[in-house]
């Protein structure tokens, strides 16, 4: 859909005084030639209560965003971040290149293959250049939230999470540890916040867990709600269900191993270390050894 803002055709600018034509000529418009500007289509995606507006000119891309982030699309017009998404055709890029997140000239910059995103640290306006795929925008949103949370005493954690009896529980572990399995086994009275990437933020003297649209093998977004965090379980598959203690230093080390952070920024890395220590002092951390059946949820209340 396009809207024409001004005509560029020659037009007759004749004027008449009374009945006598005093000027009658055809000439180029005195106004600069204006290019047809496509309509800007927007969607606001709010994760953890932080609203990010994505602007695109592609109705198809907009529809994909609304599908992918269903439940997290906000009707609010206000957004803390405003990012223009410029879609481009695929280019050759190094398939094994890792993501680079750097802070330069008061701007955050993400470079990953043919993805390039940047925004002003203060103004929070920026652009994303990417091909029309859902994974790049997902990566930008994840990284943006890791940067934001690092200064708020929070983090994104490689963990599934759920709310039960008004309390949130995190289940963390490396790939294959059972994050998706324990999500699949959740009883009907549990609300799934995510099966892949959990959103944790300190609020006063407690931590809150928020739902995210970042899905793993379940391939569906979590519920967009939150609850005070009651415990973090470090998952291990075993022969019986049991909750086992873990030393504080081991707990912090394993917590740090599962925090998502991509920026080469020593100051923020230091903040994350402090956040992990604070988290461990306020939230019980245990090992959860489990067999993959529903009885494990008898331990989680």
């Amino acid at each position: 859909m396009t809207t024409t803002l001004a005509t560029t055709e020659k037009e007759d600018l004749s004027i008449e005084i009374g009945a006598m034509p005093i000027a009658r000529r055809t000439h180029d418009s005195p106004f600069p030639r204006l290019i047809e500007k496509p309509d800007c289509l927007s969607v606001v995606i709010a994760i953890g209560g932080v609203a990010v507006r994505l602007n695109t000119t592609s109705p198809d891309f907009l529809a994909m965003l609304k599908r992918r982030y269903v439940g997290f699309v906000s009707s609010e017009s206000h957004a803390e971040f405003d990012l223009d998404v410029n879609l481009s055709p695929p280019e050759f890029c190094d398939p094994i290149a890792g993501v680079r997140v750097t802070h330069r000239s008061a701007r955050w910059l993400i470079e990953w293959g043919d993805l390039r995103a940047e925004w002003e640290t203060a103004g929070r306006r920026g652009t994303i250049h990417q091909t029309a795929n859902p994974y790049s925008i997902d990566a930008v949103l994840r990284i943006l939230h890791t940067l934001l949370l690092a200064r708020q005493g929070g983090f994104l954690l490689h963990a599934s999470s759920a709310i039960r009896n008004g309390k949130a529980f995190l289940f963390s572990g490396v790939s294959g540890a059972g994050k998706t399995t324990i999500s699949r086994l959740a009883p009907p009275d549990a609300t799934l916040l995510t099966d892949e990437v959990s959103y944790v933020r300190r609020e006063g003297n407690r931590y809150m867990a928020y739902g995210t649209p970042f899905a793993g093998e379940l391939a569906r977004p979590g519920e967009n709600c939150s609850a005070p965090l009651s415990a973090l379980f470090l998952l291990e598959k075993g022969l019986q269900n049991s909750i086992e203690p873990i030393s504080p230093t081991d707990a912090i080390q394993r917590l740090l191993r599962n925090i998502l952070f991509f920026a080469h920024d020593p100051a923020l890395v230091k903040l994350l270390f402090q956040s992990a220590c604070e988290f461990a002092s306020l939230v019980p951390i245990h090992r959860l050894v489990f067999v993959p059946d529903q009885r494990v949820w008898d331990l989680i209340r």
Binding site: S247, P248, T249, I252, Q253, L256, P266, A267, V269, K270, F273, Q274, C277
Partner: peptide
């Protein structure tokens, strides 16, 4: 680096390469 003493043990992490 970032460091914190906990339970008689000192945890130290490099802020450059996250070695713990």
């Amino acid at each position: 680096i970032a460091a914190r003493m906990l339970g008689g043990e000192m945890m130290v992490m490099s802020a450059v390469d996250s070695t713990f």
